[in-house]
Computed example of a mutant assay.
Amino acid sequence: MKSGCQVVDQIGELEIVGNIVPHLWYKNITFSSGKAHFVAIALLADIVYWYRPTMMRDDSGMIKGARTKFKGDMLQKSYQAFADTYGFTKRQVKDAIDFLVDHHLLVREFRTISSSSIILSNVMYVQPIAENVKRVMNERCNVSELVSICPPDTSERTTSSPSKEGLSHQGEGAPAVEEGTYTESTSKNPSENNEQQQQSAGECPLTFFKDNEFGRLGSYIQEKIKTWCESLSESLVVEAMKRAVEQGKHYWSYVDAILVKWEQLNVRDVKDARAKELQIMFEKVYKRNVQSGGRKPVRTEKLPEWFTEDEAAEEDCDAEFEVEKAKLMAELEEYRERGIGVVN
């Protein structure tokens, strides 16, 4: 069926998939000032997409069932994974997730995943609250009017997860896991994911700080580490502490100086840090070779005028003295010849 507009017909032939943002969200999901919270809207649309069922069809094309797009009872995705997908900063993502949780549009849980070889702590899981998402989609209902709705129980939540009170307390202060999502949204194969899980499990900044005896881990240092993890990443904080250990400098000020330098260089990850440091080292060596390639000029020093004037004056005095001496000797010799006034 044709609409009569060629462009409309062409767009109608496109198979558009992915996130869908209802128009009312821009009026309902807002800050207290009334402006739309674009980061929260984008993240909620992404999460809702993952919770939309995938239809299963038979050979004839008929729908025979539905399945989830992810494995497990909830979607697992980290702050960093959201930031990498949409180009937001990690801080923006965390603030937006906090906003959605505080306004009863999202449930967030931090879990510990264990297997025979590794243990992953503080792995973030998210789940939309369907009833409240429906309200902000279908009516003029601002997020400030939403009320808390208990999420449905799942096998993970009822058996292996802590209680509701423990989850809410843990979720507020738990650090973000740095690796990407372990759901179907990842583009890496299972072996690469396993390497990432092993790496993240052994590189917790707080654990590394304690194990390598950097000193007492007080609340101030914990806050500094948390701030740097949010500004850069956990892997970069651990890498900076490794550099300090290799140099035998087990104190936080040295680590902080490394992180400040990386922040100035806009370092993204450990690989980027090493690449930029190698580039800086190469530039220094090249500059040194260029400067030492030419012949150094012979240094000549110009004597001050007063130095030459004094020397010339001394030479004049010596010449006058010799003249006077010669004159006196001639007179003395003359007196001797005459024998006058000379005492032998």
Rank of each mutant, 00 (worst) to 15 (best):
A244R: 00
V267D: 09
V255C: 11
L232F: 08
W306P: 06
L259I: 08
R295Y: 14
I225Q: 04
E283V: 06
L303D: 02
E320D: 11
A240E: 04
Q279I: 02
D316F: 14
Y251C: 01
Q279W: 06
D316W: 10
W306C: 09
Q247W: 01
K287Y: 08
T308H: 10
Q291S: 06
Q247Y: 02
L236E: 07
A319W: 03
R299P: 00
L259S: 07
Y286H: 12
P297Y: 05
G293H: 14
D316L: 11
A275P: 01
F307S: 00
G294Q: 07
V267W: 12
I280L: 15
M241L: 12
E305A: 05
R274C: 01
I225F: 07
V285D: 14
H250E: 02
E263D: 12
A312R: 15
V245K: 09
K271C: 10
A244W: 00
F282H: 14
F282I: 09
Q264K: 08
V270D: 01
D256P: 01
A275Y: 11
S235M: 01
E283A: 13
V298W: 06
K271H: 13
V285M: 13
D256F: 08
W262L: 04
Q279R: 01
C317L: 15
N266R: 10
S253D: 09
K224F: 07
D316V: 12
I280K: 00
Q264I: 04
H250V: 07
Q247F: 01
Y251M: 05
T300R: 15
S233N: 11
K261E: 15
W252C: 05
Q247L: 14
E277K: 00
R268S: 12
K296D: 11
E320P: 05
